[in-house]
Amino acid sequence: MAVRPIIRFPNPMLGRSAERVSRFDDDLHSLVDDLTETMRAAPGIGITAPHVGVLYRLTVIELDRRAGPRAFVNPEIVWRSAETARHSEGSISMPGISEEVERPSRIRVRYQTISGETLEEEASGLMAVCLQHEIDQLDGIFWIRRLSRLKRERAVKRFEKLT
């Protein structure tokens, strides 16, 4: 396990779509371990492979350290509720900045485990927020693109002052 360097905003890689994972092997297991360690060191509750420069559709989310991390390989949202909720979001690629983002309050996601098994589950609350946020990143949509132009510009200016 290793803590990998995190790509920082405004690196163009954060705007690229990730490729599907097709090999469920020891390298994938090692990448999941590295993502977990990197996320914890950041610190954060979610990370994608593109955050460390690997353009694979892979995210690790850990909402509760006691429950441990969950890896989602090739995740896709297959259903969204019409009901929405607002939640504060940020990114390990833009540390120190957060804003409220409105998203569907519940989703259904289809994904594979690190052994390749396909599963589907419904998520709500913080897990729904995290999955939508990280799947956006896998699609090349950095979280601030979900903000109004004014809020996005303010967030970028605040981040520039921090760096």
Rank of each mutant, 00 (worst) to 15 (best):
V3R: 13
V3L: 04
R4I: 00
R8L: 15
F9E: 05
P10H: 12
N11P: 01
M13F: 02
G15T: 11
R16Y: 00
S17Q: 15
S17E: 15
A18L: 07
L31V: 04
D34F: 06
D34V: 04
T36F: 07
T36L: 09
E37W: 05
E37H: 14
G44H: 04
G46W: 03
A49C: 10
P50S: 12
H51P: 00
Y56P: 00
L58Y: 07
T59L: 14
R65S: 02
G68V: 02
G68N: 05
F72A: 07
F72W: 10
V73Q: 09
I77T: 13
I77R: 12
V78W: 08
A82I: 10
T84N: 11
R86K: 15
E89C: 03
G90D: 06
G90L: 08
S91H: 05
M94E: 04
M94N: 09
M94R: 11
I97T: 06
I97D: 02
E102A: 12
P104F: 10
P104M: 12
R106S: 14
R108G: 05
Y111K: 12
T113Y: 09
T113K: 09
L119I: 08
L119P: 03
E121Y: 05
E122L: 08
S124Y: 01
M127I: 11
V129G: 00
H133W: 10
E134R: 08
Q137V: 00
L138A: 09
D139V: 02
R146V: 03
